[in-house]
Design a protein around this nucleic acid. Sequence first.
DNA 1: CCGAATCCTTGTTGATACTG
DNA 2: CAGTATCAACAAGGATTCGG
Lengths: 105, 105
Amino acid sequence: MLTNKNWNCSMSRVLDVVGGKWRMNILWVINKHKKVRFNQLRREVEGITTISLTRGLDVLIENQLIEKYDFETIPLHTEYELTEKGKSLMPILRDLNQWGKEWLQ
Amino acid sequence: MLTNKNWNCSMSRVLDVVGGKWRMNILWVINKHKKVRFNQLRREVEGITTISLTRGLDVLIENQLIEKYDFETIPLHTEYELTEKGKSLMPILRDLNQWGKEWLQ
DNA sequence: CCGAATCCTTGTTGATACTG
DNA sequence: CAGTATCAACAAGGATTCGG
C-alpha cells in the first residue's frame, strides 16, 4: 500500500499496518472479546467477507498486532488474540473513534 | 472509499477522511507551519506529486479539516491552514506518530 | 469449521503535459 | 504559482467455489 520511506514521521508505517478498510475494526472486535474465533469475528465485523477477513488477519499477524492460536483438531478451531503491541494501540484507536464521534457526526 | 455505515464505531468515517496515503502527512506539515502555500507543501511532503497533493487537499477541505485562502493576484497565491476541527485531530496524530516510532522501528 | 484459490470489479496513486 | 487533463498502473476489495 504505502512505499515511501523518506517521511519525517512514522505515519506512513502506521497506515501500512492499520490503514486498510477493515483492519482497525478487526482489532476493535478482537479487543472486545480478548479471544475470538474466525466465524465469530466474521459475524461481528459487519459486512466483511471471508477473504477480506483472512487478508486483514494476515497483515495484522505479519505485523504482530495479533496472534493466532491453531488447535489442530477436526473440525478446525482457531483463535485470535491481541499481542502487547496490539494492545498498546487500543487507547489511540479509542481516541480516534471518539474524535470521529465528536467531529464527524 | 468506505461505504459501510453499519459499524458500531466511527472508525470507518475517520479513515474516509484521513486514511489516504498522504493526508495525515499533509495535515502534519500544514500544522507545522500554521499557514503554508501549495508549492512549499509539495516540497515538504516528500515524494508527493502535484496531483496527489491537490486531491489530498480537496478531501481535507471537503471535510473541513483545513481551509484554503485564495488571494486573487497574478501570480496566484493560495494558503492552507488548519481549522479547529483539523487542529483537534493533531494530538491524536502525534500519539499515532509516537506509537509508530515506539513499535514499528 | 476455517479458511485458500480463482477470477473479477473498483478505487487510489502516479507520470506527463498543459493552462489561467 | 497553483493547479487541471488525460492516461496508465496497481492495490484493495468482493463473489464464488473448493478443500483439509
